[in-house]
Amino acid sequence: MTTATLPDTHADRGPGWFRRNRRTLAPWLFLAPGVVFFLFYVVFPVFQSFQISFYRWDGLSDPQYVGLANYRELATDRAFEVSVWNNFKWLLLYLLAIPGGLFIALFLNQTVTGIRVYKSLFFFPFVISQVVVGLVFTWFYDPTFGLLNTMLQGIGFGPVNVLGDPTLATYGIIAAGLWPQVAYCMILFLTGLNAVDPEQVEAARLDGARGVRMLWYIILPQLRPATFIAFVVTIIGALRSFDLISIMTNGGPFGSTRVLSFYMFEKALSEYGFRMGYGAAIAVVLFLIMLCFIAYFLWSMWRQEQGR
């Protein structure tokens, strides 16, 4: 750089090159700590997991390269198949949180005395840890004393052992997961409804729009940002489901409630020997499913960025 040889005309001291380039350097200095942390704990591990999935490794001895053997084993693994199907059940049924949350938000979007307290109490389940939600629902479903069966008996039905029945258990856990998720979506929609343009609503009312038609043509288009976020957090929540399964059934009965995230954990860190490579292969499959959604989310966000 030729300018570096010119005498420094600034009165204040300090490294001249740094001062002149500070506006290009500053962002990198501010970014450095965060980026380094994020690279080492999040970005690199994603690629390492891809690599580990080609090895047989118990976590202690030297990893042994096995090529695609782990993936070939997945193709014939019944438990893996069950997990994938359960993941799709979770994805599909978890989306019910969006209409559910909208419904409660519409119900509570009034100004009567004490409504603020009601809103926060309805939101309450989201703040509780999933571990406690799992415990609470395990007792709720309990066949001998659970509230659910007490109520069912009240209207003349026999006891149902929800979590002990392989055909029902997954749905029971999803219902428990929906409880906090509906609360989350509700708060998103309440905020969205707050910002709905009252003039448009009045104008539509004058034109005779009411009820469902009003909701569909006037309100929902204005709730789009809230709906998008509700969609994002619900999809992520569905694919991350682990705590509830681990607490409520630990994968059982007969492995019927496993999902990929749980099965991966079980394989990689089970008592019957660590199978890190196989676990990583399961994680890669889960990641690829998630990647479809991540790509869609990023694309939507990118379009918004361009729109500004």
């Binding site: 704990y41 999040v42 970005v43 591990p45 995230s261 954990f265 990689a268 890190m276 998630m290 990023l298």
Partner: peptide
């Protein structure tokens, strides 16, 4: 860089588990 942070935030924990 911004999208790296956003995407990393959506990643399933399990893909990080063994390396972390």
């Amino acid at each position: 860089l911004f999208f790296m942070f956003v995407a990393g935030n959506f990643v399933p924990f399990q893909i990080l588990m063994v390396p972390v």
